[in-house]
């Protein structure tokens, strides 16, 4: 199954990657070849097989609701590119987003 250049640009946007024209061309070709290879999984008829998302059969791993110390502010911000008044600073988002 090949992938078009537009589809590559679409997934790049989903994945928040700004691709150059050269990258878009190259990745269209490479991703097309990879997708064709991995499409091999569709050869198998596995309608009645339960998907396996995890190799271990663990359930119910929880922690008690007991607080542990948070980081000092300097440590929290220490690796940040930009900070201001104890906040992480980023360019304007211009949009609101809700959970």
């Amino acid at each position: 199954m090949a992938i078009s250049r537009d589809e590559v640009l679409h997934v790049a946007a989903l994945a928040r990657l700004e691709l150059s024209d050269e990258e878009a061309d190259r990745f269209t070709e490479q991703l097309g070849a990879i997708l064709e290879a991995v499409s091999k999984v569709s050869e198998l008829d596995l309608g009645d097989v339960e998907p396996l998302s995890h190799p271990l059969d663990l359930v119910n791993v929880w922690a008690d609701d007991e607080p542990r110390p948070s980081l000092p502010l300097e440590a929290a911000l220490g690796n940040a590119g930009e900070d201001e008044d104890g906040h992480f600073r980023v360019p304007p988002t211009g949009m609101t987003r809700e959970s």
Binding site: A76, F88, R89, V90, P91, P92, T93
Partner: peptide
């Protein structure tokens, strides 16, 4: 300049 501050 406009910017956004984040409090986690």
């Amino acid at each position: 300049a406009a910017h956004t501050l984040v409090d986690y």
